[in-house]
């Protein structure tokens, strides 16, 4: 799967794979198979832009984010940050990577330590990686807190004194404090209330402009991705089945799975219900994924060759890639 090297890309993922061994036995653990959580995905993120990863649970989007954050090591493939493979980073380089790439997680209740003050939570990336004075640290914390719409005085409070939306703002502040180049947003608004989601999404967009930071947005909600992302990748069972600029993808979805996702997405008006594809069955187990095209057992357009041969990714128009025998 050759991907042309993108020179203006901040981060490039090439043929990334992550297999988790499935083991049996208490003492002598025997590997009886692998969960193919991520199986050969490639994409790149440009400076100051957002790439959205959409898919259902178990499609490998969260594993992808963990690989990017180096919380897991890939089985195969490269992740290049400004041309350098992040998995070769050690010591100072790794520290530097840690300040360059940050994350905001889904659950604002579990992502802030209940025993730390907001100031310590927000400044963690600074304290760990840089020799900054307490005063510099406090000034920077006050600055980012204001940027995310909180008061600088709230730095001394504990997380339980904040609502969900405010806590997510604290998480965003912490991710921003070290001037990162990339922030991985793992379902940043799905745990929030409806009227709070728009606040946080708008905030994230504003901050992107202000900091020229790139986002990798992991989401299951297509509308959220449409609002936030410049480019969108649709994942199914560890693979990217379709990748395009967001506008292109939303106006011209090609892969049957993508179309099914659009059909299943909830309408914004009762008159807008459109169901062109309704999927039957559920996502198969990633331990023994179906042969050929992984989507063929659920695909309404499946052809004989789909179960035998895995489709090759094709570029149907500039920047719009699909893996499907139909095209």
């Amino acid at each position: 799967m050759a991907v042309a090297t993108n020179n203006d890309a901040l981060l490039e993922v090439r043929n990334l794979k992550k297999y988790f061994p499935v083991t049996k036995g208490l003492i002598l653990m025997k590997t009886i198979g692998y969960v193919q959580a991520v199986d050969g995905i490639s994409f790149s993120i440009k400076q100051g832009e957002t790439v959205g990863l959409v898919g259902e649970s178990g499609c490998g989007k969260t594993t992808t984010s963990k690989l990017l954050l180096r919380l897991e090591n890939p089985t195969e493939g490269d992740i290049l940050l400004e041309g350098r493979d992040i998995n070769t980073f050690r010591g100072a380089e790794l520290q530097d990577y840690r300040t360059t790439v940050q994350a905001v997680f889904q659950d604002p209740w579990s992502s802030l330590s209940p025993r730390m003050r907001v100031r310590d939570i927000v400044s963690e990336p600074l304290v760990v990686n840089r020799n900054v004075t307490t005063q510099e640290k406090n000034e920077r914390v006050a600055e980012v807190l204001q940027q995310v719409g909180l008061h600088a005085q709230q730095a001394t409070n504990y997380p339980h004194e904040f609502s969900g939306g405010q806590r997510q703002r604290i998480a965003v502040a912490s991710a921003l404090v070290s001037y990162p180049k990339l922030i991985v947003l793992d379902e940043p608004v799905s745990a929030l209330d409806v009227s709070i989601r728009a606040q946080v999404m708008n905030l994230l967009k504003d901050l992107q402009e202000q900091y020229n930071v790139s986002y990798l947005l992991i989401a299951h909600n297509l509308a959220t991705v449409r609002y936030m992302a410049h480019e969108t990748a649709v994942m199914y069972l560890g693979q990217i089945v379709e990748y395009a600029e967001t506008e292109e993808l939303y106006n011209n979805a090609l892969h049957p799975y993508t179309r099914a996702l659009f059909s299943a997405a909830l309408p914004s008006h009762p008159d807008l219900i459109r169901e062109d594809i309704v999927l039957q069955g559920e996502v198969p187990s990633p331990i023994n994924p179906p042969s050929g095209c992984r989507f063929h057992p659920r695909c309404p357009f499946a052809m004989p060759q789909c179960s035998e041969e895995a489709p090759v990714e094709k570029e149907v128009s500039p920047g719009h890639r699909v893996s499907c025998h139909l095209y």
């Binding site: 728009a198 999404m201 449409r226 936030m228 967001t246 939303y250 997405a265 309408p267 807008l272």
Partner: peptide, 13 residues
């Protein structure tokens, strides 16, 4: 304040 699937908006209310 809910983003729309059917149309792109620059800024959510």
């Amino acid at each position: 304040s809910v983003p729309k699937l059917e149309q792109s908006v620059d800024r959510l209310y």
